[in-house]
């Protein structure tokens, strides 16, 4: 007799536990307002990444097309993956003395792991993280970027 009552109590406990699960899914079925999916390409206009989002490394330029990079090479040394290459040039300054300026600050996005060491260690805060995240390209050479804009020069106040 005991085993029979156990049989039925097991059966009903089982059914009620199944019903508890079905209630959860059924509740979500009748409340489509709970849908959390983001309609990604459509919401491009409203989709703003967080200001700290590590999308890519950029070199901010001001309105005079000037940046703060002195070409010291600390970011290149600190990068664990060798994704930064700096090509410097020596040009005479106003006093006629040769001075180091960057020719190209090359950033290989394909090798970057976004550890943030270059941005953190840059002594003149010349680098920053950009919020761009749509990096897919058909040619991987496009992932090698030159960060300093053509014709840009060094910000004077950043030099000291």
């Amino acid at each position: 007799m005991n085993s029979i009552s156990k049989y039925f109590s097991d059966l009903f406990r089982g059914i009620s536990s199944l019903w508890a699960g079905m209630r959860v899914t059924g509740k979500y079925f009748i409340s489509p307002g709970q849908i959390v999916t983001q309609q990604y390409p459509e919401n491009r206009a409203t989709l703003k990444m967080e200001p700290r989002f590590k999308g890519e490394i950029i070199m901010p330029h001001d309105e005079n097309n000037q940046h703060a990079c002195t070409g010291c090479g600390i970011c290149e040394i600190n990068c664990p993956n060798g994704s930064i290459e700096i090509i410097t040039d020596r040009v005479p300054n106003v006093d006629g003395k040769p001075e180091r300026v960057i020719d190209k600050h090359i950033f290989h996005l394909s090798m970057c792991t976004f550890c943030g060491l270059c941005v953190k260690t840059c002594p003149s805060d010349a680098l920053a993280f950009g919020q761009e995240f749509e990096h897919a390209v058909f040619d991987r050479h496009k992932l090698t970027k030159v960060l300093n804009q053509p014709g840009s020069s060094l910000k004077k106040e950043a030099k000291k």
Binding site: T25, Y28, F29, P32, Q34, I35, V36, T37, Q39
Partner: peptide, 10 residues
């Protein structure tokens, strides 16, 4: 569609 709505998807 049914499973999507159950799973909070579109």
């Amino acid at each position: 569609k049914v499973c999507a709505v159950i799973q909070n998807r579109v």
